[in-house]
Write a protein that binds this DNA or RNA. Sequence first.
DNA 1: ATTTTTTCCGAATTTTATTCGGAAATATCA
DNA 2: TGATATTTCCGAATAAAATTCGGAAAAAAT
Lengths: 156, 156
Amino acid sequence: MDISLDHTDLQILELMQTNARISNADLARELEMAPSAVLERVKKLEQKKVIRRYTTSINPAAIQQKLLAFIFIRSSEGFSCCTNTAQLLAQIPEIQEVHHIAGEDCFLVKVRTADAASLMDLMRNSLQKIPNIASTKTTIVLETVKEQQELVIPKK
Amino acid sequence: MDISLDHTDLQILELMQTNARISNADLARELEMAPSAVLERVKKLEQKKVIRRYTTSINPAAIQQKLLAFIFIRSSEGFSCCTNTAQLLAQIPEIQEVHHIAGEDCFLVKVRTADAASLMDLMRNSLQKIPNIASTKTTIVLETVKEQQELVIPKK
DNA sequence: ATTTTTTCCGAATTTTATTCGGAAATATCA
DNA sequence: TGATATTTCCGAATAAAATTCGGAAAAAAT
């Protein structure tokens, strides 16, 4: 299936990125098209996996997740074991992101916990159980100034 | 207004985090409640800013955003100017996240661009224009193994 | 130039959202 | 504790939206 996106698709993505719960009817009004035509496009964007999913952004503080940290993780062995290490990291629910990075550190991981104590727990209980982790370097976030999931949608 | 969340609220958050476009009717069926009652709760969660927004996760590759990088940015002056620097960074659309971090580096920034060349452009054109940036250290992501926005919703 | 495919429309139908009065359950407090 | 206030929920009515589908129009392919 073709993955090329025209201007209308980009408009849809822009509007839905800003508000995933916009009604199809409103979307159609914005685009000055029939609801049925817009719906067809949205379904196609979902099929093509251009749209990955619709998520709700929850205020972490409201559910007692006050601490955000980034952890650089160095793997002790070669490239082959990295994939395995990555999978193990990805399974930990508090870990939101796992990136395989260039350079001497193997992974950069984003993690959210209630507080410093529970981060410590996580590192002791979950991280230390993963084989081949040589070292970790943790960076604590004091304040998040910007946090958007939005991508920059090209104009055309 | 009270911000305490009961079990039903947490269930709603869990379901909506997984799929922001779930219909209120389906939500009500899952919770075995009347749609009107569920709607009332959702509205309240929005009012209380427990729910921040509903977003659509777009496959970055589909819109030619193939490069992901993290940049550590050191500010040359004291704490007071940091706020200003943060604001300037936050205005750059390609920068998705700006975190004020503990330690000698002042900020950790997450940035998405089309490719290495456009990241270079960004650094030359946008970053270098910001006063008081002493140094930057860029980490390129080779592969993203996990990328979730979901928080861990407590059971009770 | 013809055929095929895609995109769109509009109308019909099903489903959902929204509103609201009032009952039931909870919480507050004197 | 007992009375009062507040919150939560339901159910029914109505307004709005989603979904389906046949077929016209536009675009692309041959």
